[in-house]
Design a protein around this nucleic acid. Sequence first.
DNA 1: GTAACTGCAAATCTTTTGCAGGCAG
DNA 2: CTGCCTGCAAAAGATTTGCAGTTAC
Lengths: 165, 165
Amino acid sequence: MWDPLSWGGRVRQPSPPATWETQISEILERLRNRGWRLTAQRRAVAEVLSASPVHLTADQVHQRAAKRLPEISLATVYNTLHELARMGEVREVALDGRACRYDPNALVAHDHLVCRSCGTIRDIPKRDASPEPTKEESDGFEVSSVEVVYRGLCRRCRLRQRRSA
Amino acid sequence: MWDPLSWGGRVRQPSPPATWETQISEILERLRNRGWRLTAQRRAVAEVLSASPVHLTADQVHQRAAKRLPEISLATVYNTLHELARMGEVREVALDGRACRYDPNALVAHDHLVCRSCGTIRDIPKRDASPEPTKEESDGFEVSSVEVVYRGLCRRCRLRQRRSA
DNA sequence: GTAACTGCAAATCTTTTGCAGGCAG
DNA sequence: CTGCCTGCAAAAGATTTGCAGTTAC
C-alpha cells in the first residue's frame, strides 16, 4: 500500500502546535506520577505519536522512533502503545481490516474520518446531533460508547484516482 | 477467546425465518444470473452466512461449512466471501483489531453493536437522528458513507463478568 | 539492588497467493 | 471442452510471547 505518511511531496508536515512540547511533558509527567518508569524508548513512542496529525500504525511509530533511537524494537513499541492505551493516554483505533492505529487524542470525545483507499484515519469533532449511548439496546446488550465512522476518500487519494482515470 | 457461536447451552439457535430458504435461493439465483458459477462450496458459504443471527468470521464460516462439506478449504471460503462482497451480497465488517466478519444484510442500511469482550457483531436499525454523509468534510475529504458503532457488552459477556466478580 | 523494561527471535493468528488438478456450464 | 473453481501448502502481514540481559528508580 502507498503510505501517505512517508510521502515527501508538496504538502509540508504541519509544524507541531506551540504547546506541543508542553503537551508531551505533561503526558510524561502524568505517567511518571502513576508509577510509569520513564525510558528513552517510551519517550520516543509518546513523542512520535503526539506529533502526527493523523493516526499511525505500530509499524509507522516504530519506523519514526527508530530514526532517533535506531535500536528500538517493534515489540517494545507494541508494549508501550498497549500500556499507553491501558492508562487512557491513547486510543486504539481499528476501523478496517488493516493494521490498528493509535490515536493520541483520548481526552476529548470525537469521531473519525477513514480513507477507504489508503487507510488514513483523522479525527473529526462530534456533530450536534450525534447519537448517544443507551443503557440497554436490543437483546440485553449494554452500550457504553458510540462512535461515528465517516468513510470516503482523502483529498490525496481523490487526486490520485482522478489522475489514473 | 471464548466463542459465543459454538456455545451449546440453554439459548436455542433461533430457527431460520419462514422465508429463509426463499432468501437463499433468491440470492443464489441472482448470482447465477450475473454469471456466477454455482458450486457446492459457494452454496455452503452463502447458506451458513445467511443462517446466523450475528456476523461470522471467515474461520467460523469455514468450520460450519465443513460440517456439511468436510473437504472445503479455508482459502475457498475467503475467495467466496470476497466475491460475495464484491458483488454487493455481503458486507465485510472490521470494527476492532480482530478477524473480519461478514454481514449478509447488505441491502438495508443499518448500524452495528460490537461486544468489547467477545467481539460479536450484531445489526441494529439506524436511528432517526443518524448523521448523514456530507460532500466535503475537513481538508478535502469526501465522505461517501456514515456508520454508527455502538460498543459495549453483550448479555452473555455481562453475565459471565458478573459471575467471575 | 531489584523489579520493571528491552531486544531478539520464535510463535500465533489472519489473510493472501501460486499452482496442479477438477468440474460447471 | 474450456475456463473458472478448488484444495493444499507456503507466504505474507500484524501482533504476541518467552527469555536472557539491561536499566530506571
